[in-house]
Design a protein around this nucleic acid. Structure first.
Lengths: 103, 103
DNA sequence: TATATTTGCAACTGATTAGTTGCGCAACTT
DNA sequence: AAGTTGCGCAACTAATCAGTTGCAAATATA
């Protein structure tokens, strides 16, 4: 039921919501206006983001402002770390050099 | 049907496969040995990774070696870029400085 | 040639999901 | 006080998904 960060960012709508919230905090209605689907559908997406702690709520009267919790995104960055060494051409070439040295 | 990178890395098993392939190329059978589920289940995961171009195949006789396409992971890194500015305390403090300068 | 191994593909099934609708509650507005 | 607005929660449904089993093709081995 409760999803992790990777599942949370798997959905394009949810990624778009995160991008919106990167600019400034917003209420569910304000967020929903950016999409064609209903408020409740968007609200469900927000709930998933909240479960994953990618988003925090701030109640103000009857309105709820959703804030991006950018720090949580660090976990994705941390996971990427293991591949970062591999994807850069410079490192590949360095790898080749090391292989040649072995011979 | 065809999934994108974000959907591909949403599954923990698939992330584990990617981590395995970060070490060296492997055949489906070899990969499946690391998991409790059946070969076909693992094969399906590999197929998803291949569709997302996170993995390339290299046929050798009747064996197929799957290689990690680490460069594709850059797309996730690129998406993270928009949040990287926000998650670092130093940048938040810099932001405060800029706000104060405005006054 | 006969047999075993490696693999992908297709059909089936139970579980999960995304989106809708309807509701109720709390908080503003007039 | 009465009506409106903002919102979350719950139930329903159609669609999708994950994993299994069974099969066929290609390569290797005896």
């Amino acid at each position: 039921m409760k999803k992790d960060i990777f599942q949370a960012i798997a959905d394009p709508t949810r990624r778009a919501i995160l991008s919106l919230l990167a600019l400034h905090a917003m209420t569910p209605n304000a967020i929903a206006e950016h999409f064609t689907s209903t408020r409740q559908a968007v609200s469900k997406h927000i709930q998933v983001l909240a479960d994953a702690e990618l988003v925090r709520q701030e109640q103000q009267g009857r309105e709820i402002y959703y804030h991006l919790n950018a720090k949580k995104m660090k976990e994705v960055d941390k996971w990427l770390e293991q591949f970062r060494v591999l994807w850069d051409k410079k490192f590949s070439q360095l790898d080749d050099v090391l292989k040649n040295l072995k011979k």
